[in-house]
Design a protein around this nucleic acid. Structure first.
Lengths: 192, 192
DNA sequence: GTTTAAACTAAGCGATTGCTTAGTATTCGA
DNA sequence: TCGAATACTAAGCAATCGCTTAGTTTAAAC
């Protein structure tokens, strides 16, 4: 009986994610969202309830996005130190190439909204839990492969590299290319 | 001839700094500012021109604040590895004590506003230049005292520890106490 | 004590915020 | 083909945004 939607929820959500990524939460108006998402306000509210809920969904979408476009090499079976090194170096390169001034949406959100909203805080935590587990597996693989010492405290190192990744997300906006390289090189050298 | 102000620019600026620190830039309204600063809108605009200019001044004030309340041990003559270690450990402790959910105003600002506004970007860069130079001096002192190897690349290490500090500012909101400790311990161990 | 320039009060400016709603269009099952 | 349920359009809601302004108070210079 019903009329069918003229847009895909998933597709317009991805557009919304990009708008929030560029402008942040507060500075993104619903007017701008309807323009960039290509649907009007009624449809936004019908599909996503309200602005905050749309944002929470955009954060989830961002996790998917990063997993597919950035983390894949680290999630491959047996990925170890070589992949971690390549990933971190690549992270610094990407942040200093073309017009990539957006940084990391999750870090931006943690900075702007902090722990004020419980749903958003939950999403932030889930994002970092995922990364920590990913790093832990990579480090375990590295031990198994003999790339790092077998007595390495991999849990501790996972926390360290998570911190380094968060540092890179800030430093990507404030440091030059070479300084960023210094940061990552020392982080990697300590485990080799 | 003129009537004299009933408030101190410096004192109300410090109040404004705290409001921005808690709520961020966009989420801080001028109505909230006049309430917390204890002066009305006319006086805010008379003393600080507009909201953005007030914020830029608040960022400058924040640098003063942090220098006095956090960096002093590192700025003492001859401060070296012992002071750096104490400082970083202390940074993690402070971030996990009482109700300190504010994080670092500069990191929050970098996340929320990025490089969008040139004046704000300039203030962010000056803040980190100061820290980098401070760390560089500390590391030079540490070499002179024989606390670290004399062939240490102190410039590179300064960039590393700057990145670590930025990481702590994000991790302080997202990591638990012990994870934060892991992060800092590994960062420090690599130079010992 | 008068003059005068600035500090202050309170009201309100137009614009924009997130969100809603009344009315219309569309597509489905029957 | 028609009824029903949902998608959509466009207008507009109250509230708040950053900021200004007209009118009043105050304190220093003479």
């Amino acid at each position: 009986m019903p009329r069918s939607k003229a847009y895909s929820d998933d597709l317009v959500l991805e557009k919304a994610m990009n708008v929030f990524w560029v402008h942040g939460y507060e500075a993104t108006s619903v007017r701008l969202l309807e323009k960039e998402m290509g649907i009007n306000q009624f449809s936004i509210y019908a599909s996503f309830k309200n602005k905050k809920n749309l944002f929470v969904n955009a954060l989830r979408k961002y996790r998917e996005h990063v997993i597919i476009n950035r983390f894949q090499p680290l999630l491959q079976e047996g990925a170890g130190l070589v992949e971690l090194e390549r990933f971190l170096i690549n992270a610094t390169v990407i942040r200093k190439s073309f017009d990539n001034k957006k940084g990391c949406l999750v870090v931006n959100t943690a900075g702007e909204l902090g722990e004020k909203d419980p749903e958003i805080a939950r999403e932030i935590n889930q994002y970092y839990d995922f990364i920590r587990n990913m790093l832990l597996q990579v480090l375990k693989n590295a031990v198994a492969k003999g790339e790092i010492l077998s007595n390495t405290d991999v849990e501790k190192q996972a926390n360290f590299f998570l911190g380094v990744m968060q540092g890179i997300s800030v430093a990507g906006k404030t440091m030059g290319k070479n300084q960023l390289k210094d940061f990552v090189e020392i982080a990697l050298n300590q485990i080799k």
